[in-house]
Each structure stands twice: as structure tokens, then as C-alpha cells.
Amino acid sequence: MLSYQRRAILFGCNLVSQCCNSYEYCVSCCLNPARTQKDLVLKLKIAKPVSAGTYSSIFDYCAGRCRHNSESVVHENAYLSDFHHCFSLPSNSSGDSDVQIEARLVGIKIIAGRQGESCDSVCKSNGQSCVPNKLALLNQCQIMQKYFSCKGSCLASIGADQPAEVVDDAPNDLNPGACLYTEKQSILSCDGSHQHTRRLCPCA
């Protein structure tokens, strides 16, 4: 008979997206040292406030992360799939591979908007809605470079219109052709726009 953890890996979890169809399977897969890096997990804050503490053990991380995960919902009231118990690192953590990022975008249509458009507008024109909790996944150079040319440049910036590409005919001081990401994740929004950028938008 297969062990509990072995069954979880075989039947209950998508090991690419690191999401499972039950809480128990999720915790079991998460506890596997090959899937969860202890040194990264124990540095993570339990919540966003500066005063928040860190996880005391891998088990605490797995138990908490598998229970609720904003990245597994769409429009804040529906799950993206049956595999909604996820143990992957939060999207703004280091160490995400392209495969992991793409897996978390399953069910999301990524659309490059027109100049000056907000993501709300971009998605609406495609009969969909912007999914705000996926913006952080797109706010990375390696992802933007798949959809924009970026002209060899990807720069940190501050603006609610990011992630975005500066249009070619923008003033020189705005770095025409460059891709922009923000280091301040809290300002990412679906309604941000700028007259000289094209946004990269997550729609569903």
C-alpha cells in the first residue's frame, strides 16, 4: 500500500503549480523537503505588517499556507480550479521559476494593453475582468520580456500603471521602450494607467 505522502504526490497535487485538491494532501506535499526550501520559508513573514513575525517551523508554514491562499481565487469569490490548496511561496518571494509563475497563471489570460489603457479597460474590452491578485506575478522582468520587447531594459519604477512598457515615442527622460516594474507591490492596481505606457494585464 502506498504511503500517505506518496498518494498525495500521485493523486492529490499538481506538482508544477504546487496546488492540491485537499488541505491534507497540500500539507503532506508541502512537508516534503524536495518541494519546500526551509531556508526560504523560515524567513517569510506570516503577514504583511512590518511587525509580523516569521514562521517557527516548516509545519507552521505548510499548515497556514495550505489553508488559505489569495492567489488561488479569482474575483475574490471563486476558486480558479479544484486545486486551490497551494503551498508555493507567495508570488513576491524570491526563488520562483518561470514554470512556477506560469503555473500560477493557469486560467488567466495575459493581455498587453494599448497606450494609456488601464487593466480594467484592457480586460473589459476582452469581455473579462482584471484579477488584481495576479498583478504581482506579472510584475517581474522575466515575465514582461515574454510579452514586450523591453528594448533590453527593465527598470524599477514607482507607479500604479506597472507592470508596463514605455511606448517608443515617449519623452527620452521616460526611457522609451523600457519595461517597468514596481518594487512597491502595494500600489499595484487594475485601474492605474499612464499616457506613455502599455500595461501587462491579468484577465479572467
Rank of each mutant, 00 (worst) to 15 (best):
M1E: 02
C13E: 06
N14E: 14
N14C: 10
N14T: 10
L15Y: 05
C19T: 13
N21Y: 12
Y23A: 06
Y23C: 06
E24T: 15
L31R: 13
A34L: 12
R35E: 05
Q37N: 07
D39V: 09
K45F: 01
K45H: 14
A47C: 11
K48V: 07
K48N: 08
A52T: 08
A52H: 02
G53N: 08
S56H: 12
I58Y: 00
F59L: 12
D60C: 04
C62P: 08
C62K: 06
R67N: 04
R67S: 12
S70F: 09
V73C: 10
V74W: 06
E76Q: 09
A78S: 15
A78E: 15
Y79D: 10
F83P: 00
H85R: 14
H85Y: 14
F87Y: 07
F87L: 01
S88D: 12
L89I: 01
P90A: 13
P90V: 10
P90T: 10
N92H: 11
S93L: 01
S97K: 09
S97T: 15
D98Q: 10
Q100H: 12
I101P: 11
I101V: 15
R104Y: 08
L105T: 03
L105H: 04
I108L: 05
I111N: 04
G113M: 03
G113K: 00
G113R: 05
Q115A: 08
S118H: 11
C119I: 05
V122C: 09
K124E: 11
N126G: 07
S129G: 08
K134W: 04
L137S: 13
L138A: 02
N139W: 00
Q140P: 08
C141G: 04
C141H: 07
K146A: 03
Y147H: 11
K151G: 04
A156E: 09
S157G: 12
S157W: 01
G159E: 10
D161M: 13
Q162L: 13
Q162I: 08
E165F: 01
V166I: 15
V166A: 04
V166N: 00
V167E: 05
D169F: 07
D169S: 03
L174E: 12
L174M: 12
N175H: 14
N175G: 04
N175I: 00
A178H: 01
E183A: 09
Q185S: 09
S186A: 11
I187E: 12
L188T: 02
H194I: 03
H194W: 06
H194G: 03
Q195F: 02
H196F: 14
R198L: 01
R198Y: 01
L200P: 00
C201V: 02
